[in-house]
């Protein structure tokens, strides 16, 4: 990969574009399972544009990042080093993690916070093949009655919910679509 490709693909207008991308992240986390469009990033494959925008918006030199084997290439490492500057660390030390669901296993490795500081928990950015078909029914804060969403599995998220207020929080990305599942959401199979 040459330098031009590594240097490209960030936000052209960082303040405005990261503000818009953050609003997508905020709406997604506030309304679990609802799909938000998020654009502006063009990261090297296999990172999706949506996951790239989340990285550019939230990840920097102060947030250790775990790259799962599915997304861990020389090109992605170089792109993240230039655009975010995040230290790449083992799963146990990560504030953010990026990868396909299978490659992130076992998710029990990730930080779930402590009783005193439940916010010191990892945020997983899970690359998905698509945003459909819905596989789970979600209920909880942010959802008026219930909402259907596409999740890679059910059991891990149901187990994560039982740890509340501890637990990890997830973003799911496919193309330029973003949706989220905070630890507070109840998940059951459709």
């Amino acid at each position: 990969m040459d330098h031009a490709e590594i240097l490209a693909g960030g936000f052209d207008d960082p303040a405005a574009q990261s503000a818009r991308a953050f609003r997508a992240c905020l709406e997604a986390m506030a309304r679990p399972g609802r799909i938000q469009p998020i654009t502006g990033a063009a990261p090297p494959a296999p990172i999706s544009p949506a996951a790239g925008a989340v990285l550019l918006t939230l990840v920097d030199t102060t947030t250790p990042l775990y790259l799962a084997p599915s997304q861990d290439t020389q090109a992605t490492r170089q792109w993240i080093a230039f655009h975010c500057g995040a230290p790449i660390v083992p799963a146990e030390e990560a504030a953010f993690a990026l990868g396909a669901w299978g490659a992130l296993q076992p998710v029990s490795r990730f930080a779930i916070g402590t009783a005193d500081y439940p916010d010191r928990a990892a945020t997983l950015i899970v690359e998905m093949p698509g945003a459909t078909p819905p596989s789970a029914r979600l209920a909880g804060p942010g959802i008026e009655t219930c909402h259907e969403a596409c999740l890679p599995e059910i059991a891990a998220f149901a187990a994560n919910r039982t740890q509340f207020p501890l637990g990890f929080d997830c973003y799911f990305s496919a193309g330029s679509q973003l949706w989220a599942l905070p630890r507070s959401t109840n998940v059951e199979a459709l």
């Binding site: 990261s18 992240c25 918006t57 939230l58 920097d60 905070p182 630890r183």
Partner: peptide, 16 residues
């Protein structure tokens, strides 16, 4: 950088 720090706190606040 400051906005990113505040934004991360806001997202954790929404999650808990």
């Amino acid at each position: 950088a400051t906005k990113r720090m505040i934004r991360r706190a806001l997202l954790k606040g929404l999650a808990i």
